[in-house]
Design a protein around this nucleic acid. Sequence first.
DNA 1: CTTTCATTGGTCAAAGATGGTCTAACCATC
DNA 2: GATGGTTAGACCATCTTTGACCAATGAAAG
Lengths: 157, 157
Amino acid sequence: MRLSDAIEQFIKTMLVEEAQEIELKRNELAEYFGCAPSQINYVLSTRFTPDHGYIIESRRGGGGCIRIFRMEQSSANQLLYMMNQRIGESIDEHSAGHLIVQLLERGYVTKDEARLMQSAISPQALSLPVTTEMKDALRAKILRSMLLEVARKDKNS
Amino acid sequence: MRLSDAIEQFIKTMLVEEAQEIELKRNELAEYFGCAPSQINYVLSTRFTPDHGYIIESRRGGGGCIRIFRMEQSSANQLLYMMNQRIGESIDEHSAGHLIVQLLERGYVTKDEARLMQSAISPQALSLPVTTEMKDALRAKILRSMLLEVARKDKNS
DNA sequence: CTTTCATTGGTCAAAGATGGTCTAACCATC
DNA sequence: GATGGTTAGACCATCTTTGACCAATGAAAG
């Protein structure tokens, strides 16, 4: 298994078992996994971004540490509203994928629904002879349209 | 026997004995057969396409790999395949909607899934400054992509 | 107080590890 | 020998891991 995945799992397990907020020492964690400290930053920046539903805080110096928060929504509508904002007029494939995974993790869509959404904005679906910018803009529209549908469903249930 | 056929057989044997889903390393497999890594891609692209009933996923970089999913040859998928043919390179909104309703009525997708699909190819989702022909072509791609996902869901959950 | 220094974490670029694409040469079949 | 599938190889794209160097913080020393 990839080191990054192991570290990601480790942190996520802590987040589930401990609380919605954990605190860790970068160097200790790096030593635990026998890797370079910057590896921790790599994992955080690729798997614990706001798009993934996390917030990171840190402090340097003696007694410094890294804090990770799982973002909490007061309501489904709030999350969907924020995602709508996040999508904006343009969104790349990876970011869009992260948002969809969040919808799944938070239980707003089923696994099959998440896969359908992914497939609708996949490279194959959007394989057009246009610029990346145009594809990102189109992806934003499609995703927003689907997000609206998710919101509608949520209301009726 | 041709190299390509040998590799094809090897993979198919794995898929039968192991499971409906296997994971392999391109370089390892190439080394095993003493051939160029790109040969693996050749085999995959000529013998493991969706039309052949397979779906390929892959990931680059350290720890990267290729995953192959086998779709069952069911009557349901026969129909999905026909629908795929029906879609072709272009489909108008009305026909697409009709097709999705069919999927729902035949029980291949849930009501929510059908709605998601509709929303992904709705006029809002495809509100672009292009000709109707281009939209129909794009709609076909999106719909085909989602249809493939429906076919896959049928057994690989 | 200010300076210094040990202790943390952050950034960035290079190297490493995979897989993808494209094309020319090869080969088999007709 | 014309055609079309096969194979190898050069070059590309992406993801991971490490390491050198930078920045911030707090405590100890002056």
